[in-house]
């Protein structure tokens, strides 16, 4: 192998595994500066903290790979949370509450999917999903306000519902959803079709994929996962309010993109997203453990997101170049 070839390899490794390397660097630096970072308790804490956003990110990654966007997931988390907690608190009907919450989420997702799939099939106006789900976000947020009348619902009693946020349960749910989605996206024809739809919808349609139906299913998955996140989140904090999901959609989407899934669609995946979720979670935890002031903290988080996207873009470009030479 020539000198140049070796150099190319190193660069390629750096670019391909950049995020994992960055994660390791963060872990090493923080472990040296603070003694409590690399402890079992803190690691479990981090996993518990990222579980709700992580589950949301898993739902939305399917949407993003298909070349769409779902901003409504934050309101879905809120709505499913208040539906669930209202049943738990006032009627002691945990099972009913949780089932209804999940159905609500899937329903909101299906509604998104139905609208977007029909628009996309007409003249392929794909970008509309961004603004349609934004509208849905506002509408569902208002519905949650109407439903609760703005009341803060605090749960005091232990119940079946509180089990989902305690101990290892949120982590197990996160792992389970990861495994299921990874299987669906990698090993089923439906999962493959998501990638085809994302990279070239017209071609996907011509090759016989039912784009409309699959788009609807993808959004339903996203809504359903957001509802699971809503149940886990409300169980974890033992309360629900009409604002509890606010802002979480961007945390989830940022984790997806940091993991290396392209917003243009057709590229990315479940395991990458899990890595993105963990990087963002470890980073937030590290910044808090180092007790860095608020504004620098926000700035560092912003810069890391931008760097992660740049890294991914360079890696893709580099690979394309290398492929051309070979």
């Amino acid at each position: 192998m020539t000198e140049k070839g070796k150099k190319l390899d190193i660069v390629q490794v750096l670019l391909n595994y950049g995020l994992i390397i960055a994660l390791c660097i963060i872990i090493v630096i923080v472990s040296i500066s603070t003694e409590n970072f690399l402890t079992v308790r803190n690691i479990i804490n981090i996993l518990r903290q990222v579980a709700p956003t992580g589950i949301m990110a898993l739902g939305v990654v399917a949407v993003i790979v298909a070349g769409h966007m779902d901003l409504s997931i934050s309101s879905t988390v809120t709505m499913s949370g208040v539906v669930c907690v209202s049943y738990v608190k006032y009627l002691q009907a945990d099972v009913k509450g949780i089932c209804l919450a999940l159905l609500t989420g899937a329903g909101i997702g299906l509604l998104n999917g139905a609208i977007i799939a029909n628009i996309t099939s007409k003249k392929g106006r794909k970008g509309e999903s961004f603004i349609i789900t934004y509208g849905m976000q506002a509408a569902i947020a208002a519905a949650a306000l109407l439903y609760t009348n703005g009341i803060y619902m605090n749960l005091q009693e232990k119940s079946l519902h509180s089990f989902f946020g305690k101990g290892y349960v949120p982590i197990i749910i996160f792992v389970l959803t990861t495994v299921i989605l990874e299987y669906v996206m990698k090993c089923t024809p439906f999962g493959q079709s998501i990638y085809y739809i994302g990279s070239n919808e017209a071609a996907a349609r011509m090759s016989g994929i039912n784009v409309k139906r699959n788009t609807m299913i993808i959004f339903t998955i996203s809504g359903f996962f957001a509802a699971v996140a809503g149940v886990v989140l409300t169980s974890r904090v033992g309360a629900a309010s009409s604002t509890s999901g606010n802002g979480l959609e961007l945390d989830a989407i940022a984790a997806v993109v940091v993991g290396g899934t392209a917003l243009s669609g057709g590229k990315g995946g479940v395991m990458k997203t899990v890595l993105g979720v963990i990087v963002m979670g470890v980073l937030s935890n590290a910044l808090r453990l180092l007790n860095i002031d608020t504004y620098p903290q926000m700035m560092i988080r912003g810069v890391i997101i931008i760097l992660a996207v740049l890294l991914d873009v360079f890696a893709t470009q580099f690979k394309a170049k290398g492929g051309a030479k070979a």
Binding site: V82, V83, Y90, L100, T104
Partner: peptide, 10 residues
């Protein structure tokens, strides 16, 4: 439907 029947407890 969900909102209708869900509205009861709150």
């Amino acid at each position: 439907g969900l909102m209708g029947c869900g509205a009861s407890p709150a």
